[in-house]
């Protein structure tokens, strides 16, 4: 029991260290960050949408890129596919069940850069109450001073998830079992 408490205390210290180590806040205030998705419609075309509300922080230093980390919390209820009736359906029990699972989360466990801009993120993604480890490629787009006295860095990353892996079993047809997620973030250095 004592051990557990000590381990817990160390873990929470580490966790808070990770949080305080984050030197960038994602610019959701100015909407310079997007979490987009697309899914095949019947196998004939793409349906696009996005999550309008989320927040997050990341840690990045061009000198120590492999010490990077990112944490994102998404309000699942903010899903927006530009169609009220569809969005209502997506928020309901057939899909995201947002009253039961109002948040989706991603927290990286490892970020490895292969060169100056390209890398791979590994982390735990929680959606619909199910947590899975995923990894996907990211790319740093650029960094530098902005015209208003701040300092910004931007990344993009794409991944594909299988809906059934997260307990979302509604049948949209054989071409629509996976969703592509696109992460486009710009962070402002604190």
């Amino acid at each position: 029991m004592k051990k557990l408490i000590i381990v817990g205390a160390i873990a929470s210290c580490l966790a808070s260290n990770m949080a305080s180590a984050a030197n960038y806040v994602i610019d959701t205030k100015g909407a310079h960050a997007f979490i987009n998705f697309k899914i095949k419609h019947l196998g004939y075309s793409w349906l696009h949408g996005r999550f309008n509300q989320f927040e997050g922080e990341f840690n990045y230093d061009a000198k120590k890129p492999n010490d990077s980390a990112i944490k994102l919390v998404i309000d699942t209820g903010s899903i927006d596919s530009n169609h009220a009736e569809r969005d209502k359906h997506l928020r309901g029990k057939d899909f995201l069940n947002v009253s039961k699972y109002p948040k989706a989360k991603f927290e990286s466990t490892d970020i490895t850069f292969n060169d100056a801009t390209k890398g791979t993120v590994t982390g735990n993604f929680t959606l619909h109450g199910v947590t899975k480890t995923i990894h996907f490629d990211i790319q740093k787009l650029g960094e530098g001073s902005d015209p208003w006295g701040g300092y910004r860095t931007g990344f993009e990353g794409n991944t594909k998830i299988k809906l059934a892996d997260y307990g979302i079993e509604y049948d949209l047809g054989p071409a629509s079992t996976h969703v592509d997620l696109g992460l486009y973030i710009e962070g402002i250095r604190k």
Binding site: N82, H83, A84, E85, D87, K88
Partner: peptide, 8 residues
Amino acid sequence: LISTADGR
């Protein structure tokens, strides 16, 4: 209100 929330 259900159907018209998106401006349609």
